[in-house]
């Protein structure tokens, strides 16, 4: 069996310094295998986003062990963090597209990170990806001319186009209505299955729990694993 793509042991995390120091993650243990779709829920302020940013290399891990794609993130240097970021696809709650780039150019930015791709036809790839998320007729639109669901789909295209081994998504449907939220999740599920990626999705939305292979529950900085039947 392959080693897990995410492997966490006795991870603790603190915010603040000195007397203001406050622990937000307590003794997290978690393994996620390649190809799994995992959903994480839990009350607000329980530490879900914190855990996700640690996994994505956006924050430095402090205590314990956090291995992403076999790279130990605890004590990793800036270069190693950047390297991990390039191998993880992010879908942000607020889509954070570049307002001065069109949908196509936004998606391209993700490909341009990889030097080995730069000589391929990036535009064609970006357009194909936008078609896959149902935006074939919006490739040259600026984000301000797209609806919330359309923007979120551009963000998904951007996160998935470079075939990341891990996709991290933080409440990707929070800003969407029921129908478009469902659409977005189904597109993600389909693309991830095609690409064989692993996905970890944070959500408060009960209506999408059914796409998960496994559901995690976070409460007060502790992780509770609930196996799905």
């Amino acid at each position: 069996m392959q080693p897990p793509v995410i492997s966490i042991h006795k991870l603790n995390h603190y915010f603040g310094e000195g007397t203001l120091r406050k622990q937000v993650l307590f003794n997290i243990n978690l393994e996620i295998q390649a190809g799994e779709i995992v959903i994480m829920t839990g009350p607000s302020g329980s530490g879900k986003t914190t855990l996700l940013t640690l996994m994505g290399g956006l924050r430095s891990a402090q205590e314990g062990s956090l291995k992403i794609l076999n790279q130990e993130m605890c004590g990793a240097n800036k270069r190693q963090l950047i390297e991990i970021r390039r191998n993880v696809g992010y879908i942000f709650q607020a889509h954070n597209l570049m307002t001065f780039l069109t949908a196509k150019q936004n998606v391209r930015m993700s490909l341009e990170l990889h030097d080995e791709m730069i000589n391929q036809d990036l535009d064609a790839k970006a357009i194909a990806m936008l078609k896959a998320v149902g935006l074939g007729d919006r490739v040259d639109y600026y984000p301000e001319k797209l609806s919330g669901g359309q923007k979120q789909r551009v963000a998904i295209a951007r996160a998935l186009i470079s075939y990341p081994k891990i996709v991290l998504a933080d409440e990707p449907t929070a800003a969407l209505d029921k129908k478009s939220g469902r659409d977005v999740v189904e597109i993600m599920q389909k693309l991830v299955k095609e690409q064989g990626s692993t996905i970890l999705l944070v959500t408060h939305d009960n209506r999408i729990l059914d796409i998960a292979d496994r559901i995690l529950y976070m409460e007060d900085g502790c992780l509770v694993d609930k196996q799905l039947v």
Partner: peptide, 15 residues
């Protein structure tokens, strides 16, 4: 104006 976008680029792996 574009600070969140720059942060996003950094999160994607731009140095």
């Amino acid at each position: 104006d574009h600070l969140p976008e720059y942060a996003t680029l950094k999160a994607m792996g731009y140095s």
